[in-house]
Structures are given as C-alpha cells and as structure tokens.
C-alpha cells in the first residue's frame, strides 16, 4: 500500500496553542518500508499517526491511499482501518475482554468474519506475537505480565490482517527482554510483507530495526532517508533535540580515537563483531 502525505498541515481547534502541530508534511510510505519516525516530545509524532486512518482531519493538504484521497466520498474508512492497524501507546490499557481469546477476536468479529475464520485469525495472531494459543487463550489478559499484555494488544491489531502496522512507542516501560521480543515480532511481521511504521523516541530500537528514518521537529519533517547518513548529521539531531543513542556515542568515540576504522556500524552486535574480528 502506498500512503502519500501532500502538504499536510494540522492544528487543533479551540486550544490556546494556535501553531501548526504538523506543518506542510510531504512524504510517501512505500511497499516493504520499515520506517522509524523519531522526534522529541511534542514534535507531532502521535498527531501524525492519527492522520493515517482519518482519525484526525488535516487542516490543509491531504493523504492519498494508493492514489485515492483519504477524505474522498468513495473511501471506506472502516475498511481502511482494518488495512492500516494502529497500536497506540500503552495499548494494554485498552484490553477489556475476560479472556485473551475474546480480546484478540474482537477486531475480526467486528469485520463480520465467520467463527472459523476468527478462530484461525486469533491462533495465527497469537503465534505471530510468540504466545502459545493453547496456553493463553482462556486466561484473563489482566493477569499477564506487562510484556505479555502488550503482545496481546498487538495481536488484537494483527488479527485484522492489516497491510500496514503502525506502533506508537511500542517499547515504553518494557524491560530489555520485553523489548527484544517486540523487536523479533516486528522483524517477523516485516518478513511476512507487512509495512511497518514505528514512532518512538527510543532511538536504539528504531536504528536496529528500521531501514528508513523520518525526523520531526516542531511538526516539520527535517530528515527523511536511510539510517546510514542520519548519524553524520549531529547538528540536525541537536536541533531536533534528539540524543544520539548510547551505543552510537560509544561507536563515534571509538572511531574518533582510531580504535575502529568503520564508521558505518549502528548496533551493539555490529560493534561486537568488529571488535572481536
């Protein structure tokens, strides 16, 4: 699915803040994209997400889904929201059913699928987030660990079988093991052909996963490109109030002091390989 933002601006009505929260955004999400959207708090990340499925209407400009304008008469928003799945921040706070099964089944049931199809979708979604359906289906989502709750919430979105999955701060408040699991899940979904968009200020995580990075500052897009070139732009990152991830600070330090010769490594595991080679 191609999602194109054209000159999109947005400001909230009836608030004291009368500036544009998003300003003249132009970009396109392509098939197979694995995009990280980063930016400091208040840069407009979460507001941006809500424009992907028409949860917010642009004040000016437009969003095109495969060439069709999102707010046009012919656009079926209900259908669009099954094709673009959004996992909001702390999605576990939206779990509400008595069992894990019922919670994950909620979306596909609303789509009017047969019980047999719903069943398959639930099992498949739980499998994709690494939860054993036999073990978890009948349990209450409220008595799972934080990481498991989040995975159930993600499964609930995957169960609608979207082409595009958008996640807002998927790692917030998880421990390193929980973060690693989410990372694996997202890699797996991307391999299955899903387009994935992660919104996060956890930069290490974004850099490990994504092949394309978009940087927002005060509602403006100030960078859109691959991760290889982004880290040479320290000045741009400073301007956007973004701290270089710890691992990259270490890599930069080693490179500047001539301990390593490679400046094109981005993750701890790449650094380990270089040092032990």
């Amino acid at each position: 699915m191609k999602i194109r933002f054209e000159e999109l601006s947005f400001k909230y009505d009836n608030t004291p803040v009368q500036r544009n929260v998003l300003e003249s955004l132009n970009f396109e999400i392509l098939e197979h994209d694995f995009v990280g959207i980063i930016g400091a708090s208040g840069s407009g990340k979460t507001t941006l997400i809500q424009h992907f499925t028409g949860l917010l209407q642009p004040s000016s400009g437009r969003v095109l889904i495969d060439g069709q304008e999102l707010n046009s008469a012919g656009m079926d928003l209900g259908d669009l929201r099954t094709r673009i799945g959004i996992v909001f921040q702390f999605p576990e706070s939206q779990l509400f059913e008595e069992t894990v099964y019922a919670d994950v089944a909620f979306g596909p049931q609303n789509m009017g699928l047969s019980e047999a199809e719903v069943h398959d979708r639930v099992e498949e979604s739980l499998r994709l987030v690494g939860l054993d359906a036999d073990h978890f289906s009948k349990r209450s989502p409220f008595h799972l660990s934080e990481g498991e709750k989040r995975r159930v919430a993600i499964a609930g979105v995957i169960a609608m079988n979207p082409d595009v999955l958008i996640l807002d701060e998927p790692t917030a408040c998880l421990d390193p093991e929980g973060i690693r699991i989410i990372e694996e899940i997202l890699r797996g979904l991307h391999r299955l052909g899903k387009q994935i968009i992660i919104v996060s200020h956890h930069m290490d995580f974004v850099v490990r996963l994504c092949n394309r990075i978009i940087v927002l500052q005060n509602g403006k897009l100030i960078y859109d490109g691959d991760k290889k070139s982004i880290f040479n732009q320290t000045r741009m990152l400073n301007r956007a109030n973004i701290l270089l991830p710890r691992v990259l600070q270490v890599i930069k330090r080693l490179f500047d002091h001539g301990v390593i010769e490679n400046s094109d490594i981005f993750t701890a595991s790449e650094l380990r390989k270089v040092l032990t080679a």
Partner: peptide, 10 residues
Amino acid sequence: GLDVPIESEI
C-alpha cells in the same frame, strides 16, 4: 532478562 551498560561491555 536485563542488560548491562554498553560501555561496560565494550
């Protein structure tokens, strides 16, 4: 299930 600071490891 925890991590060490990257600098300690490096």
